[in-house]
């Protein structure tokens, strides 16, 4: 036995509940992915602002210690599809 649970037999009630919750979560996940895809234009602007700030005010290396990032250090966006929900 690990810290998280004691082996037991799952009854029919519980099996049916899990089936229902699995389906509900799948829907919830798909909705989240869509909402996040729809947020892309705003996110692109936030990223551009962030990359600008770390070249002026700085990047938080540790706690409040900031390092100004040089232009040549700024990464370029890859061609692949960009996603934030995995």
């Amino acid at each position: 036995m690990d810290n998280l649970g004691i082996p037991h037999v799952r009854n029919a009630d519980a099996r049916a509940w899990m089936k229902k919750e699995t389906a509900a979560q799948k829907k919830r996940y798909q909705l989240i992915v869509k909402e996040q895809d729809d947020l892309s234009p705003k996110r692109d602007k936030w990223i551009a602002d962030f990359l600008q700030r770390i070249q002026t005010r700085g990047f938080n290396v540790d706690a409040d210690m900031l390092r100004v990032i040089k232009p040549e250090e700024i990464p370029t966006k890859p061609k692949r599809k960009f996603k934030v929900v995995f």
Partner: peptide, 10 residues
Amino acid sequence: HFHFNPWSNA
């Protein structure tokens, strides 16, 4: 793990 690459994946 801190960094500044917005496009890195998992």
